[in-house]
Structure formats: structure tokens, C-alpha cells
Design a binder for these strands. Sequence first.
DNA 1: CTGCTTTCGCTACGAGTCGTAGCGTAACTG
DNA 2: CAGTTACGCTACGACTCGTAGCGAAAGCAG
Lengths: 241, 241
Amino acid sequence: MPAAQPPASPDSVERAEPTARTCPDPAGAAPHRAAATPEPAGAARAKGRPRSAAADRAILDATREALAELGWGGLTMGHVASRAGVAKTTLYRRWPSKNELVVDAVATLFDDLVMPDLGSLRADIEAVVAQFADLLARPETQAALLALFAEGTRDRQLRRRIRESIVDPQKRLVRQGRAAAQARGELGADCDADSAREEVDIIFDTIAGTVEHRVLVSGEPITPEWTRRFTDLLLGPLLAG
Amino acid sequence: MPAAQPPASPDSVERAEPTARTCPDPAGAAPHRAAATPEPAGAARAKGRPRSAAADRAILDATREALAELGWGGLTMGHVASRAGVAKTTLYRRWPSKNELVVDAVATLFDDLVMPDLGSLRADIEAVVAQFADLLARPETQAALLALFAEGTRDRQLRRRIRESIVDPQKRLVRQGRAAAQARGELGADCDADSAREEVDIIFDTIAGTVEHRVLVSGEPITPEWTRRFTDLLLGPLLAG
DNA sequence: CTGCTTTCGCTACGAGTCGTAGCGTAACTG
DNA sequence: CAGTTACGCTACGACTCGTAGCGAAAGCAG
């Protein structure tokens, strides 16, 4: 017996303002295709009915909600579609699979992290660690992050997408913190660009990896006391070098 | 049309020596049951046909092979069963789901990690990091570890099982390294037990989390140069404190 | 206004997996 | 011997996947 789909009032997301462009892939969701079209880039082709920006937002919101409620394993494309008031085919027109959809849905959560510049390197590090811990405490993040990383170990394309959308942008926090500390005189100037980038990478992997492991694997909370001890670990050689 | 199962010679794993006890759960695979049986523990009830230890090994081996070839998402219970030359029901009699099966299949891989005692804390740390990096380079480990951690964020029972079988046992490496360094005089004696345990925890989370993040998320290799710099990070406050 | 193009909601489909049940048989104990 | 448990095998309903086809809607060029 068919008719599994509820009425769901299909007009609920139609006819909305086409303002915010959180659109995942304006030129088609096929990044693995190697420039088959003649025109190189840009050239916003406005032919035919445009894609509903409201549907984009409804889908991404529904994805985050479903992640929080059902977790990674419970999240299905059909579920997201009906929750967003959208047909399943509409999802597949924009994202090739669950993985890419969740990357876009979760990436925005990480944009809220900021480098506060509190006047000392220690205070800045502790503040960022606390922010990251709060982010990892959210159910959407918990459900999505490690599962995405796991999928990324098998799918190079996906891993690249995760890095570009979620991981690498956060390295700005380390760079900003270093710059602020250098301006204060807490840290010396960079010797050369390569060495500086390697140091940023190692500090980033250490902070991100350690906090993730503490929260998501060991399952223990990030207390101010823990943050202080962890910051001790980072500050020792940093201030010395 | 049925007959999807190949002949597979069902006797291939039957009639084998019941020696090695890598058996996952001798008292039944229901750890969530709260001691319903009258007898408290032990009391090896040997009634009826005993479970085939050879089947246990065949299943765990097949699980590791399938993980390496197909990854976490490609691993199905039916696939493991036919690869092990065993009925699917036999799997479900021992493990309630894929998650628990993979925990047992992967746990043994981590037992190979050893604390070498090379004469200095730095050499010991670098050796353990290199071992861990090698372990994380194996496809079975890559496919399983992060996926298990991800599932564990939703399933408390599973997370406990992961910690008890895979994660926590490796803390011995940190304890052994500390003890060796203390014997050499590189480190001072412990003040109290609580403080020592917290320090072991934080060092463990830092090493495990950072190396995992570097290899599995950033996807960059663990070079001797990287290991040296990372060890610098750990040694600074350790030797000072 | 009339075509032309693309998106949309909806339905339907084959393929695959899940976890369970039932059956007859095998293995081991007392 | 009877009693008990594990095993291989088959079959099942429920579910998800990703795709195809349809008619209708929403834009743009003329």
C-alpha cells in the first residue's frame, strides 16, 4: 500500500525570499566532474525555474534537527525530506549523498567559534577550548562529526570537502591567537612561513584532537581545571621557543 | 529465486581445537541484563553443544578482513557470515549488532602496542607514537575506530564497551612510561594517586587524540620530524613539573 | 501573451540490508 | 539412552537506498 507520505502542506516552504545564499553548490552538485562545460566558471545561468533558497534552508535545518534527535544512524534522506516539507528527489538534486549533506549542515555550526583576544595567550587558549567544548556538547555535533571523519577515511573526495568546509577554516583561530600573542610580545616573530605553518598545524591538531578525544571518546567533561592543565601543556614549549 | 548462499563447505570451520579463548562473552552476549541468573559468576555450565571456538575466530578474522576491504559502511552481517563460512544466525547468537562485533574484532589489534623502555622519556614517547601511527595506518583500524567512536556517542553501553576493550587498556603505556622515567630520575615521584591518575588521563587524551586527528582527519603522515616536535610539546611541562 | 527550460512534488520501482523465526540436524552431558 | 544447546539453512516483513517517470509550477526570452 502506497501513500506513506503525509500531506505535509507542500507550499510551506515555497514562495519565500531568495536572500541568504547558503546554497551548497550553485553550479550543480558534481564537484567530481572535471569541467565538462565549455564556460570555465561563474556565469550564473539563470534559465528555467531557479532553485528554492527556502528549500535549501529548510533541508539544512531539518538535517541538524534530525541529527540531534536521531543521530547519524537514524538520519535518512527520506526522513529529512519529509521533515523539511520537500520531496526526496529535491535532496538528491542538490547533494549526492547523506555525507555531503551533513557536511554542509554542520559546517555553519563551526563558524561561531571566535578568537576573543582577552589580553593573554593563556586566557585566549582557555576561552577557545571552552567554546570548542561547548560546540562538541551539542547533540548535532556529536552525532555528525566523528561519523563524518569516519566516512572520510574511505572517501578522499569527502575528506577534502570536510577539511575545506569544517576543519581547516578553524585554523584561523590558532593563527589569530599567535598573532595577538606576538603583538603583545608573549611570542617571538615567525622565522619563516613554512615553519610557522607547521607549528600552526601541530597546535591545531593537538587542541582539536585532544578535546575531541576527551569529550567524544573518553566521555568526560571539559572542566576549567582540566582546561588549565591542558593549557599548561601547550604553553610550556610555546613560550620557551 | 533463493539459493543466494554459495555452498561454502559448512564443515570448513567445524571440528577444530577448542584452545584459545578469545571468546567475546562466555556467559551470553547480554551485558545489559542485570544478573537474572541465580548463580553469581563463573560456574562454567557445560550443558548441550558447546559453541565452536573455531567459529569465533573465523568470524573475527572475517570481520577484520571485511573491514579492510569494504570499510565500515560496506561491512554487513550477512557478508561477514558467508565469508566466515557461518550462518548469519550464528553471528547474532554471539553479538547483538555490528558495533559489538567490531569492538571485539578490533580490540586485539591494540594489544600489540608496547612500551619499549629505551632509556629516555623522549625516546619512549616517540616510539609509542610511531607504533600508534602504524596501527592507525592499517585499513581495518581506519575503517573501524572513528566509526565506533561515532556510534559510541549515541550508545552509552557501547561507549563503555569501547573504553573497556580498546581505549582504557592502552593507558598502561602512559603509566609504564611514567614509571620508567621516574625510575631513571627524569620525573619526580607522584604526589597523590588522584593527581597522578588525572595526569595520566590528560597525557593519554593528548597523545591519542592528537595522533588520531593528524592521521585520520588531517590525513597527513606522522613523520619523525613531526613526532619530534610533538614530543617537545609534551616534554616541556612534564620535565618542569 | 507564447514557447522554452528547469525545478518541484509525487508515485513507483528493483536492489539490498536488517533482525527474527522455524525447522531439522549435530554435538556434547548425565 | 534422553535432555540440552549450537548450528546451517530458508524464509519473512520492514526498512532504506537511489533512480525514473509524470504533470504542474516558476522563471526567462521573444
